[in-house]
């Protein structure tokens, strides 16, 4: 989960920060199943060790 989330972040990191975060949120909503999103939300809540900072910010914005 951490590895794949970081891969997604590295792809969108080429874009301006806000655009990158919005794109990561969109990607996680469109392609990650509900329980996977819940897992990463919980992981970030516990500190999100090893996650790219763009992922951490994006996950905080997932409703």
């Amino acid at each position: 989960m951490v590895h794949n989330a970081n891969q997604i972040a590295l792809y969108f990191a080429a874009y301006p920060r806000e655009e990158a975060i919005a794109s990561i949120v969109d990607h996680l909503k469109k392609f990650w199943e509900h329980r996977m999103r819940q897992q990463i939300i919980q992981y970030v809540a516990k500190g999100g060790a090893g996650l790219h900072e763009l992922v951490v910010e994006a996950v905080k914005r997932i409703k």
Binding site: H3, N4, I8, L10, Y11, H27, F31
Partner: peptide, 8 residues
């Protein structure tokens, strides 16, 4: 288990 970032 490494895979494509978007499609897996």
């Amino acid at each position: 288990e490494f895979a494509d970032w978007s499609t897996s």
